[in-house]
Design a protein around this nucleic acid. Sequence first.
RNA 1: CGCGGGGUGGAGAAGUGGCAUCUCGCCUGGCUCAUAACCAGGAGAUCGUGGGUUCAAAUCCCACCCCCGCAACCA
Length: 528
Amino acid sequence: MVCLNLIWRSNLEVFSLTVTANLRLLGFAPNLLELVLPISFKIAYTKVSFMSRFYVTTPIYYVNDKPHLGHAYTTLAADVLARWHRQRGDDVFFLTGTDEHGAKVQQSAEAAGLTPQALADQNAQKFKDAWSALNISYDYFIRTSQAEHEVVVRELLQRVYDAGYIYSGEYEGLYCVGCEKFMPDGELVNGRCPLHPNQDPVAQKEKNYFFKLSAFRDKLLTKLEAGEYKVIPEGRYNEVVGKLKQGLEDISISRNSVEWGVRVPWDESQTIYVWIDALINYYSATQFVPGKKEFWPADVHLLAKDILWFHAVIWEALLLAAELPLPKVVASHGFFTIDGQKMSKSLGNVIDPLDLIKEFGLEATRYLLLSQVPFTIDGDISLARFRERYESDLANGLGNTFSRVTDMIEKFGNGNFTAQPGVITYTESTSSAVENALRLFEFDTALLAIFDIIRTIDGEIEKYKPWNMVKLDKSQEIQPLLNRWGTMLLDVSLYIKPFMPETAHNIEQGLRADKVLKTTPLFPRLSS
RNA sequence: CGCGGGGUGGAGAAGUGGCAUCUCGCCUGGCUCAUAACCAGGAGAUCGUGGGUUCAAAUCCCACCCCCGCAACCA
């Protein structure tokens, strides 16, 4: 009965009957049931961790921004991981959302004549719309202005305060009177605020609460070096460890002048610095979303490299201070450049993910983003290259191969197709390749491995030349080949499902029909 | 002397001591089931530069050049 359960949870409808019939339990391990499927579909599920949980997060995006390609990339990567884990039967919690507090939102709202909440409502919706357009399967969309979130933030901070890790101090910095805010060094141009270049920023002090980040340096280093939590990729890990070794300073975690934020529990005159409030979302969601308490600690925090320090050091220190378990993996990816240039508003080359969908379609956009840029490094996006890849991989590759196989089944097999257990051993290696790649967040490598099956099918078709077999009166020998190729395509559909769920569905539908007929192209050529 | 990552055919990547690999593009030939798709073959890299270790170096060591991050309250 365990078997049945697993199969249903694995979404393997296509094969479920065959698989259950052949299932054989090998043995038990402490938390692990190893199943062996003695058929040769050898899907990625030969080994299934029984009832394992998978909690993946994206950063919560600042509502002062519109969704752009960077946000889309992180979220898409998380979506693929979530779908992949669901497919293998894991209990998945996929969290994304918006970060809504802080001075910038307050200022933008004033400028737009809105309340901060109204502005946040508006812009949070833009992110939801974008994720809906990208077919993102998040389980919960958290917003930091939610009362439930604020409650957890206050509780957690109070705990840190009670433990003695927060003290009152003075923050001293350069204050721009025009902006009415402190200017970080990085924002100053020639020592002056870029928005108010005619006045010198003045040194000013304000009362703040500080978090004893410095107290956690050794502990963090020990835990990192022991692998108690991981920072991926290795280069970033080195960076974090290197910086930790250089020492840590305490950080200010409250603001005196920012109204739009969570009130400090023991001092209502201050609000919690937006970053601290934001980080806690990963934990707070598990506490107030029904049935998710068991999901903490998170398995993976996905994020871009610019916010790694917050996620790999400050967040863990806060958790340690509150005596909560640490996330298991913090995985950071690179930035995009567009046609070799930095993506920036001032250059006007910011790509809206929705424009990509308009040009290439949803499924192709998902494929192109994940296949053309290795996860951990900065990658260049060029529309010209995307078009090239669309044609070669999707139109000429997957799409065309699906067309030729279904067309041959229709023409040479009278529409008859039977999925073939016991024949295909080829895709066995794909399964481990995909698994290994995804465990390392190498989405591009995983896709390459999957698309290798397409090349193999094309190669075999060329080798057997069914159109000649018909002429040579060998028609009866064709059917097994058609079954084999069709089955390989079903395998492909299984593997690409986390990446391209609709395409996977279309392939399955096409091959599960009573009479398999040639269908409309999966990926029409762009020129036509 | 701040710390770290990187420089491999036209493009993007793999490769940490032993015939330089993959995808795309390009050229030639073949095929016709298919979305002018597919298959085969080919051209194309002194592996950033100079030196060193070794029977053997993209890979180890030294020096240098170049690109890119981080450098901490920059969402």
